[in-house]
Design a protein around this nucleic acid. Sequence first.
DNA 1: AGCATGATGCTAAATTATTAGCATCAGTCG
DNA 2: CGACTGATGCTAATAATTTAGCATCATGCT
Lengths: 128, 128
Amino acid sequence: MTSDTSQLSRRERQIMEIVYQQGRVTAAEVRERMPEAPSYSAVRAMLRILEDKGHLRHEQDGPRYVFLPTVPHEEARESALRRLVRTFFADSPEGAMAALLELEGDRLDEEALARIAARIREAQLEGR
Amino acid sequence: MTSDTSQLSRRERQIMEIVYQQGRVTAAEVRERMPEAPSYSAVRAMLRILEDKGHLRHEQDGPRYVFLPTVPHEEARESALRRLVRTFFADSPEGAMAALLELEGDRLDEEALARIAARIREAQLEGR
DNA sequence: AGCATGATGCTAAATTATTAGCATCAGTCG
DNA sequence: CGACTGATGCTAATAATTTAGCATCATGCT
């Protein structure tokens, strides 16, 4: 297991976000998405550092490398979720749920709401 | 408005998280909660930098300063939520809600689930 | 073939971040 | 009072991060 993401530097964090967002990316793609993007070779240098630190690995994809996170997506997002709930919601999942509804409610159509409601009912029935 | 939190360095980010978690903190309190905490004076120096950059402000509290974020808690968490949904949930709020339920469901008691369900019903009735 | 473009590996310089110490002040205690 | 502790303001040294250039290789095109 790689070290905690709270230890990532500024650029490292920017890159890791892009990698998780995309799933697998080339150096050029990372660069396109970086705020105030440095040179191509600077991006590659950072990617290599992240690989050396164990956060990323690469695969050959034709003439270029494609980079992937070493911590699986699922795991990383759980970790990020927990951290967010702890930092901003006094560790209350209910608060986070409410905020998501409030903030993103208008992006949830009828069907999505129904699906979430069903999940809630399920949780209620399971007494958990 | 201060610059984007994605530009925060390693220690800056650690400190901002602590500040948001606590609401208002002294330098000593920040230091207690930092991973691999540096010296008291190093923490103070970082707090001052964050203040210079506009992320924090301070108030006098007896013989010491207490630090507060300049971006209101509500705003900061919305921003963090959006970023999380975008990075890890392909910008799908439904996905984020499902993951929260999955991950933290066992921390939601009957009453909390009922309250969330009520919020969902409300959203459904409002056709949003 | 030569040239251009896109890629990697590597290096090191430049820049920024992080660190902690010193001087000074304020408050408390014996 | 002096000593001690806890605080601030400030500085600069050190460490870490970030940056980009060079050499080289591979591929495709004329």
